[in-house]
């Protein structure tokens, strides 16, 4: 007993005060991309060739980047001869709309979108891993540790879909998980939400061209919140949830 108390004191208080205080992110973290309004050199399409997930498109006014496909590897930014594409350290990437994930020089990504007042104080989610690689799942799970303390925001991952306000789907939805994903959604009472966590769930991510996957939950169900990343940083996921609840700053 004495050991338990002593260790408790030694381990200290570690919960972050988010969103009041900005989270500490590593120097090399790649967050929300920005695209400068500079015309590309004629004929240059180096970034397109480097992208493993075809997240870039060349428009007349420059490249447009789809965060819903992006795995945030930074290959495009490294190859760009004039630094048109830059990844900032802003972890806030979530959006209520699919179009809000597309970033170009004329449109830095739309506002995250309107909150749903009904869920302002309480959000219960059933997490469904549908062929996720366990990175998105792990970064959802970590929110329940004392650092993030998910419960203090009124958010919880629950065991039964009957107790849930919606599902948080990770992974590209393999054919083998299609029915189970739809069944889980069907078991959630109305009004219900679908949250796509990670590039795979939004667009299929790196598995977009696999014949065994369905290009994400977006291809099967209407999605209420998109949280891009591969995997999204836990702070990005929490920011997404709080955006939906109308409690993000």
């Amino acid at each position: 007993m004495f050991d338990v108390v002593r260790e408790r004191v030694r381990q200290g208080y570690r919960t972050c005060r988010y969103p009041a205080l900005a989270p500490e992110l590593p120097e090399r973290f790649l967050g929300r991309p920005r695209i400068a309004a500079a015309p590309c050199p004629p004929g240059c399409a180096d970034c397109l060739a480097q992208c493993p997930v075809k997240a870039l498109e060349l428009r007349p006014q420059g490249p447009a980047l789809d965060m819903g496909r992006c795995v945030f590897c930074g290959a495009c930014a490294r190859t760009c001869p004039q630094k048109t594409i830059v990844f900032s350290r802003d972890h806030r990437v979530a959006s209520r709309s699919r179009e809000g994930l597309i970033i170009s020089s004329t449109d830095p990504g739309q506002q995250p979108g309107k909150a749903i007042p009904l869920f302002r104080r309480s959000l219960r989610l059933r997490q469904v891993s549908a062929a996720g690689c366990n990175a998105c799942e792990a970064d959802c799970n970590v929110l329940t540790t004392p650092v993030f303390d998910l419960g203090s925001y009124g958010i919880d991952f629950v065991a039964a879909p009957r107790h849930a306000d919606g599902i948080a789907v990770t992974g590209p939805v393999s054919e083998n998980m299609r029915q189970a994903t739809l069944d889980t959604f069907d078991a959630v009472p109305d009004p219900r939400l679908v949250i796509a966590v990670g590039a795979c769930a939004i667009s299929g991510g790196i598995f977009r061209d696999s014949g065994e996957c369905h290009q994400g939950v977006s291809a099967l169900l209407p999605v209420d919140l998109y949280i891009p990343g591969c995997p999204p940083h836990p702070w990005s996921i929490l920011d997404g949830f709080l955006t939906l609840m109308g409690r993000s700053r």
Binding site: A49, Q50, C51, P52, V53, V71, C73, A75, S129, A131, G132, C133, N134, A135, C136, E137, A138, G171, P172, S174, E175, N176, M177, A180, G205, I206, F207, D209, S210, G211, E212, C213, C230, P231
Partner: peptide, 27 residues
């Protein structure tokens, strides 16, 4: 249930996807 057919996606490589598929085999 998690089958994504990674091995088939790797044949014909290496290409821009290869390292990403490795990193996604088990996150």
């Amino acid at each position: 249930f998690q089958h994504r057919d990674i091995e088939r996606m790797l044949t014909g490589g290496p290409d821009a996807r290869t390292m990403h598929l490795m990193e996604n085999a088990a996150g």
